[in-house]
Amino acid sequence: MPAKTCEAQHYELRFRSLHNEGRGLSFPCDERGEVPLDQLSERAVMNYLYARACIGIEYAYPAIMLSDHLH
């Protein structure tokens, strides 16, 4: 029987830039794509709100991805 892991999975909401490859934005989120705004810096909140406002203009619709970062 395989051992169960207790590691929680970490997700991020990624906004891919429509004009500059590799210049997207990402924010920590839960598995539903909900970003904990109260845990972000003021600058990160402003970037998140900007990315949401610019979907289809500057950024593609966001995707919920497993985070590449170790926590």
Rank of each mutant, 00 (worst) to 15 (best):
V35M: 02
Y59P: 04
G33Y: 02
S17C: 06
H69P: 00
P62H: 07
C54I: 00
N47H: 15
D30N: 09
L70R: 15
E42F: 05
M46E: 15
Q9I: 13
L18V: 02
G22R: 07
H10K: 14
A51K: 10
F15P: 02
A44P: 00
D68I: 11
T5N: 13
H71C: 13
Q39P: 00
H71G: 14
I64H: 04
L66G: 03
H71M: 12
K4H: 09
E7I: 12
A63T: 14
H69K: 15
H19C: 04
F27H: 06
E12L: 11
I55W: 02
A3C: 10
A8C: 08
A63I: 12
I55Y: 03
A51H: 07
F27Q: 04
L40D: 03
E21G: 03
R43L: 08
S26N: 06
E34K: 12
R16E: 14
V35K: 04
E42T: 13
G22F: 03
C6M: 14
E12C: 15
H19Q: 12
C6P: 01
I64D: 02
A3R: 12
Y48K: 08
A60L: 08
Y59N: 07
D68C: 08
D68Y: 05
L18S: 00
Q9S: 14
E31F: 05
L40T: 11
A51V: 10
A53R: 14
R14Y: 14
H19R: 11
F27L: 04
Q39C: 11
M65F: 01
R23Y: 11
G24C: 05
Y59D: 05
S67M: 09
L49C: 09
D38F: 01
G33A: 04
S67N: 08
L13S: 08
G24H: 02
A60Y: 01
Q9W: 02
R32K: 12
Y61R: 15
E42K: 13
A60E: 13
I55F: 02
R32S: 09
C29K: 04
G33D: 05
G56I: 08
